[in-house]
Amino acid sequence: ARVLEIDDPHDLARARALAPLLDPAADPARPPGALPDRGAIDAVVMDFDGTQTDDRVLIDADGRELVAVHRGDGLGIAALRDAGLALLILSTETNPVVAARGRKLRVPVLHGVDQKDRALKQWCDENGIAPDRVLYVGNDVNDLSCFGLVGWPVAVATAHRAVRDAARAVTTAPGGSGALREIASWILGPTLAR
C-alpha cells in the first residue's frame, strides 16, 4: 500500500495526492522543517504534565505529588516572556505544583479546566490575541481540541501518536527534557536574543 511505481507525471501527481493520507508529515501545506518564528507568534500556551514534565508523578508517604521540570525550559519561558509574548499554562489538572511553577516562571495559570479549547478561546478574547497567532504545545489527546483552534499546534517528541500527527511541528526534545527551550529557540533563535 505504500509503494507506487512512477512512470509519468500522472503517477507523480497521484503519489503526491496519496502521500499526506499515508504520512501526515508529507502534507505539502506543512513543509518539512517549517518552524514558527517571532513574526508568526503573539502567544505561547503550554500544557503542563507531559510538556513541562516527563509525565511521571512521584507520590510521597503523605500523598503529596512531586514532578521534575527542566531548568532549560524555565530559561526558554523567561526569554519568551521578556520578548513580549503572552504566555499561559493551561492544564486539566488541579494541582498546587502547577500553580507553584506558574508563580516561579511568572506565567499565568488556568488549571482544573475541563474544556481546554473553550478556556483558551476565552483567554484569547480577553487578551485580544488572534488564535491563529498562538503556539499551543501539548502531549496528549486532551490537547487536540486546542490544536484545532490555534495557528501553531506543537507536540513534544514524547506526545501521543495522534497528537504528533495533528501537530504542525514536533520537538526533538521530550516533554520535561528541554522541549520548551527548543520551542523558544525556534521563535527567538538559539541564543534566545531576538
Rank of each mutant, 00 (worst) to 15 (best):
R38Q: 09
A83Q: 08
D114I: 03
A40F: 02
A26M: 15
G128N: 08
A17G: 10
D82Q: 13
V156L: 07
V69T: 13
I59S: 05
A17Q: 12
P131C: 08
V107T: 15
A61S: 14
R2P: 06
D117G: 13
I129C: 04
D73H: 08
N95W: 00
R30V: 10
P108G: 06
S91C: 12
A19G: 01
A130V: 08
P28K: 02
L35I: 08
V163Q: 05
V137H: 06
R161W: 01
R133V: 01
F48P: 08
R133P: 01
V98M: 06
T92M: 00
D23V: 13
G50L: 08
R103N: 12
D73S: 07
A34F: 03
A157C: 03
I41E: 04
G176W: 06
V163P: 04
D60T: 10
G128V: 04
H111N: 15
V150K: 02
V137W: 07
L21V: 04
V45N: 06
L58R: 14
D117H: 11
D42P: 01
P174K: 14
A119G: 11
D132P: 00
G148V: 02
R168M: 11
V156Q: 05
R30H: 15
R133S: 04
G72M: 03
I41P: 03
V109H: 13
V67Y: 04
V156I: 10
D54L: 08
A159R: 09
E5R: 12
T191C: 04
D117C: 07
V170S: 02
R30P: 00
L192S: 02
K116S: 14
T92C: 04
S177Q: 15
D125S: 11
L75M: 07
R16D: 02
V44R: 10
D27V: 00
A119I: 11
D60I: 04
F147L: 12
H10V: 14
A119F: 11
R168F: 05
L105R: 01
K104V: 10
A61K: 09
V141M: 06
C146Q: 04
D62A: 14
H160S: 05
G176K: 08
V170M: 00
V44Y: 12
V141C: 06
A166C: 02
A68H: 10
A13G: 09
Q52Y: 09
R133H: 05
T172L: 14
D62C: 01
D143R: 11
L110F: 13
M46K: 11
V113A: 05
A43K: 07
S177P: 03
L188T: 11
H70I: 01
L144F: 11
L75A: 10
V141Q: 09
I41H: 05
R38N: 00
V45H: 10
G178V: 10
V170T: 10
I41F: 02
P28T: 03
G189L: 10
